[in-house]
């Protein structure tokens, strides 16, 4: 389970952010709510990146896991910011 969380962590943050935005847009479209959710999710990604940077890489599998997770969290950081852009512009 821990390994799956590490591998998918970035993507899970993205999914949480996306469906959070969907809920905000459908229920109560507010620019402030979008901004707050986005900051929280960006923060989660940064925090997650720090955790990943401390992961061990003493065997091939651990090293692979770390690099996939790192790239995933990096992409997630970009994707969350990207996803917030239209909501902020339209709000």
């Amino acid at each position: 389970m821990r390994t799956w969380l590490i591998l998918l962590g970035g993507m899970l943050v993205w999914a949480l952010h996306f469906f959070g935005l969907y809920a905000i847009a459908e229920i109560a479209p507010h620019r402030a709510a979008v901004a707050a959710l986005t900051l929280v999710c960006l923060g989660a990604d940064v925090w997650f990146l720090r955790i990943i940077s401390r992961l061990r890489r003493d065997d091939p599998f651990a090293a692979w896991r770390r690099s996939v997770a790192g790239a995933g969290a990096g992409l997630s950081l970009l994707a969350v910011a990207w996803q917030a852009l239209p909501a902020l512009m339209a709000g």
Partner: peptide, 21 residues
């Protein structure tokens, strides 16, 4: 796969959103 589409898509997205509005 990432940087080039990232730049192009961002420009397009902003144009598209403005126009949609």
């Amino acid at each position: 796969g990432v940087a080039f589409p990232g730049v192009v898509l961002t420009a397009l997205l902003i144009w598209g959103l403005r126009l949609t509005g």
